[in-house]
Design a binder for these strands. Structure first.
Lengths: 115, 115
DNA sequence: CCAAAAGTTCGACCCGTGTCAAACTTCGAT
DNA sequence: ATCGAAGTTTGACACGGGTCGAACTTTTGG
């Protein structure tokens, strides 16, 4: 039993109910190229993945920020495995709330050069 | 005689080829609630519509800006009819370039309260 | 027990973009 | 020939959001 478990400490961050997510929130989350990169990576490698294993062109603190935004927008689920924070795409759940949106985006080729 | 008259009086603004539009550009265009409001309005009323006939919570100059962004993102076509600038959704064209994206967005209910 | 690994939190900064008012342009009607 | 309607253009401004470094926390490994 870990110290955290003994202390009742829950390191699992809160996850919003997808019914409470607005389209505005989703678009604000997905408009950032770095965050789309994360979503794409999670989608291509079918399995969950730790934050650090995705190479991003930003610092660690910025990456944390992006994961936070994605989680708040209902796009990913996060949980701890040791010191690593794992990330999973909430694919079916999300598609039930916003049908067709994620497929349409993922199908699109997405050169990360900005506008 | 004005320069425009000498040039043949073409007040029609330039429209980008949809093949040159990036996903980034599209998302940046659609992340703004006012611009989504315009797109929705154009979609619900099947026919073309003048800028002024869409009631928006912004000034005229800001509205001009929004229409400009939508046009540059390949979402609308604009042409003059007298003093009125008409707007048409480039629906089929756009859906060929970004299949399913616009349908997925339009199908979504979109309370314009922000995140 | 100590140190390294993996993220998070906390300011701070800065650039983009949405906003408006004012002046201007173009067209249609009178 | 003039006036009003409809947009555009041009600055200017403000706020948000992406960015970073530094300090901190928690867990694992030696």
């Amino acid at each position: 039993m870990t110290a955290a478990a003994r202390a009742g400490r829950d390191r699992t961050p809160p996850h919003p109910d997808l019914a409470t997510i607005t389209l505005q929130q989703v678009l604000e989350a997905l408009v950032d190229p770095v965050r789309r990169c994360i979503v794409r990576h999670l989608h291509s490698t079918g399995h969950d993945v730790a934050c650090g294993t995705i190479e991003l062109p930003v610092s660690k603190s910025t990456a944390t920020h992006h994961f936070h935004v994605l989680r708040e927008a209902g796009l990913i689920r996060q949980y701890y495995a040791g010191t690593s924070r794992m990330n999973a795409l909430r694919l079916e759940e999300f598609d039930r709330a916003f049908p067709g949106l994620l497929p349409a985006l993922l199908a699109q080729r997405d050169g990360d050069r900005d506008a």
